[in-house]
Simulated scan of single mutants.
Amino acid sequence: MLGLTLVAVPATAVAASASEPAGPETAAAAPAPAAVGLDDPAKKEIAMKIVSSAENSSLDWKAQYKYIEDIGDGRGYTAGIIGFCSGTHDMLELVELYTDRKPGNVLAKYLPALREVDGSDSHAGLDPNYTKDWVKAAQDSEFKKAQNDERDRVYFNPAVKRGKSDGIGVLGQFIYYDAIVMHGDGGDSTSFSNIRKRALAKAKPPAQGGNEKTYLNAFLDARVWAMKQEEAHEDTSRVDTAQRVFVKKNNFNLNTPLDWKVYGDSFHID
């Protein structure tokens, strides 16, 4: 991208000088660069690290492909880079995608059981070897790619798209992303869409003429309410001592360096 930009600049200057000297008016006519979003690779890397700090108490999100455990939240097994759950359908869809791409993989034999336990916290048909086989699968680059792709399809891309349409910046898009990761976007009262509806009842997003900071605080208020509806999520520090910190500092572009705390642990990104 940088190389292309450097080549394009002289060409533009030559074209301008062929007819008239390049002046302030000519320069002003150049299109403004598009605003950076959370889908910018560097910003996305930051987002993955912050989510990992909350989900896995580590900034090393790429070490989480192999992660799997039942954390006792009623969602069965939680696993992988974004907390795919055996009880909330996204783990089933992930293993189905992996199996479509690589039939006969080590997890394919668990598909009938995953379909049976979907919507519950049951391990029926998964124990005793599912967790071991998940770790084996995580050594496969195809499984890692499947996790990345499902993360983007189900969580990341929808959050960024909705955030951009609401006129919020990188930080706001991240706040949306983290909410979708934890709450999903189903029809229940604590889903992302309903959290957003609660926020909209209190403040307008920038796309509707509202103040970004006011709107993000309204969204985080609604997010905290949703978290407190579940005992497993009643610790709201990933909002209070992380996202609120960035909002308070008006760091709407999520620029580094960043310092925050989650569940009492301190984290830093240069």
Score class of each variant (00 low, 15 high):
Leu2Gly: 02
Leu2Pro: 04
Thr5Gln: 03
Leu6His: 11
Ala8Tyr: 01
Pro10Lys: 11
Ala15Thr: 07
Ser19Leu: 15
Pro21Thr: 13
Ala22Pro: 00
Gly23Ser: 15
Pro24Gly: 13
Pro24Ser: 13
Glu25Gln: 15
Thr26Tyr: 09
Thr26Met: 06
Pro31Ser: 14
Pro31Ala: 15
Ala32Ser: 15
Asp39His: 14
Asp40Gln: 05
Asp40Val: 04
Ala42Lys: 10
Lys43Asp: 04
Ala47Asn: 06
Met48Phe: 14
Met48Arg: 15
Ala54Asp: 02
Ala54Tyr: 11
Glu55His: 03
Asn56Arg: 07
Ser57Thr: 04
Lys62Asp: 09
Ile68Phe: 01
Ile68Ser: 03
Ile71Tyr: 11
Gly72Ala: 09
Asp73Ala: 09
Arg75Gln: 09
Gly80Tyr: 06
Gly80Asn: 04
Ile81Leu: 11
Phe84Val: 01
Ser86Pro: 05
Thr88His: 02
Asp90Gln: 05
Lys102Asp: 01
Gly104Ala: 02
Asn105Glu: 07
Leu107Gln: 03
Leu107Arg: 02
Ala108Thr: 06
Leu111Gly: 01
Ala113Ser: 11
Ala113Leu: 08
Leu114Lys: 03
Leu114Cys: 01
Val117Leu: 10
Leu126Lys: 12
Leu126Tyr: 03
Asp127Ala: 13
Thr131Arg: 15
Val135Phe: 10
Lys136Trp: 05
Ala137His: 06
Ala138His: 07
Asp149Thr: 14
Glu150Phe: 01
Val154His: 00
Phe156Ser: 00
Ala159Leu: 04
Lys161Ile: 12
Lys161Thr: 14
Lys164Trp: 07
Ser165Pro: 06
Ser165Asp: 14
Asp166Arg: 13
Gly167Gln: 07
Gln173Val: 12
Phe174Ala: 03
Ile175Cys: 06
Tyr176His: 15
His183Met: 07
Gly187Tyr: 00
Ser189His: 12
Asn194Met: 02
Arg196Glu: 08
Arg198Asp: 11
Arg198Ile: 02
Ala199Gln: 09
Ala203Lys: 06
Lys204Trp: 09
Pro206Ser: 12
Pro206Leu: 12
Ala207Ser: 15
Gln208Thr: 08
Glu212Ala: 14
Leu220Ile: 10
Ala222His: 05
Arg223Asn: 07
Met227Ala: 06
Asp235Leu: 05
Thr236Ile: 08
Ser237Arg: 11
Ser237Lys: 09
Arg238Thr: 02
Thr241Gly: 01
Gln243Ser: 07
Arg244Pro: 01
Val245Lys: 15
Phe246Asp: 01
Phe246Cys: 04
Lys249Ser: 15
Lys249Val: 04
Asn253Ala: 13
Leu258Gly: 07
Asp265Leu: 11
Asp270Ser: 07
Asp270Cys: 00
